[in-house]
């Protein structure tokens, strides 16, 4: 990526030219370009576009999402863009996709309409301003997830998912993560070996498995909220088809509690999510299956930590955040031991 496109002003100019070409506007002006925090593997920028169409002037609040080098598991940008369109059209609270990018910013990108709000879980957990959101969010999570799992898969056949003919999405997802783990781990991890073994021995039956769109990263940090509650579900880059119980469990993985006491994002309990999911039209929740996925979820986050550290270790990034995430692996190992020892 060329150096100039890291500079906010240069990036804004390139983006203005892109939008002008795409929209056929007389002129486009970009203001307020700033890099948002978070996002270890991808860049997120916020800006405002003033689009002059001659008779009509349009003000568009924008979020620019752009790849950085080398991510292991993310969707191609164009596919993520189509998925956002499908989610938005289905009435899921997802950001509205506006422009699919080209090669003018040095890396794949797209633009969505910015929704104002907060994503930081620690603010949700601690700030007085969000007391109402803390009360409202847990059932909203269940309702949002029911809508996600009802998104039609037409036109999304290229989403990652179980291989054709796979008897069980769970087993093939476990195979996939084990292969990723074997490919990236540079040190032996006996705790992960114990967890993989436990999961193999406790696989839920293939009969009764549902197959839907799975968001793949449904957790605090990816839910935009305001003082009143949830506003949008973000970060669809890990979406795939599979067992929807995966999403119901991922939100309770310990790393997404951010120091809060309650299992769901630190603020709520699992049964509240399940009840709201069922009330909003989601299929009856299989608790044992969700528990399996919670163990798997902790392992999956551990493997992702290894992958992010590997990006640093291979010299594909100098990010101090990616480097430090390697040491978060032990957090997931600890939680896995707690979960599998409780089960025997």
């Amino acid at each position: 990526m060329s150096e100039q496109l890291r500079d906010p002003d240069a990036l804004g100019e390139a983006l203005a030219s892109f939008i002008q070409r795409e929209s056929g506007a007389a002129s486009v002006r970009i203001t307020g370009m700033r890099r948002l925090t978070g996002g270890a593997s991808r860049e997120t920028w916020s800006c405002d576009a003033a689009i002059d169409r001659g008779a009509v002037a349009e003000a568009l609040p924008l979020i620019l999402q752009r790849d950085t080098r080398g991510t292991l598991t993310s969707l191609p940008r164009a596919l993520e863009f189509r998925l956002l369109r499908a989610a938005f059209d289905a009435g899921v609270p997802a950001p509205e996709p506006l422009f699919m990018g080209d090669d003018s910013l040095g890396a794949p990108f797209f633009l969505v309409r910015r929704i104002e709000g907060e994503t930081l879980p620690r603010r949700l957990l601690r700030d007085d301003e969000y007391a109402g959101a803390r009360a409202a969010l847990t059932p909203q999570l269940g309702a949002i997830l029911a809508a996600v799992h009802a998104i039609p898969l037409d036109g999304l056949a290229d989403l990652p998912g179980p291989p054709p003919g796979a008897a069980s999405a769970v087993a093939s997802e476990l195979d996939r993560y084990e292969a990723v783990f074997r490919g990236i781990a540079v040190e032996p991890h006996p705790a992960f070996e114990l967890a993989f073994r436990w999961l193999r021995l406790h696989l839920p039956p293939a009969a009764g498995e549902r197959r839907t769109l799975v968001h793949g990263d449904f957790r605090m940090g990816n839910v935009l909220f305001g003082p009143e509650g949830a506003r949008a579900l973000l970060d669809w880059e890990l979406a795939h088809t599979g067992d929807p119980s995966e999403d119901l469990a991922w939100v309770s993985v310990r790393s997404w509690r951010f120091g809060g006491d309650c299992p769901v994002g630190g603020i709520g309990d699992r049964e509240t999510v399940f009840a709201a999911y069922e009330a909003a039209g989601g299929a009856p929740v299989d608790r044992a299956r969700v528990h399996f996925w919670e163990v798997f979820g902790n392992l999956r986050w551990g493997v992702i930590c290894l992958g992010q550290a590997r990006t640093y270790l291979d010299g594909r990034s100098n990010s101090v955040e990616l480097a430090s995430i390697g040491r978060r692996t032990a957090e997931t190992e600890w939680e896995l031991l707690n979960l599998i020892e409780a089960e025997g």
Binding site: T329, A330, E331, E333, W334
Partner: peptide
């Protein structure tokens, strides 16, 4: 051993 890793990491 995981306890030891966390004594250092977190």
């Amino acid at each position: 051993t995981v306890h030891a890793k966390l004594e250092v990491a977190n």
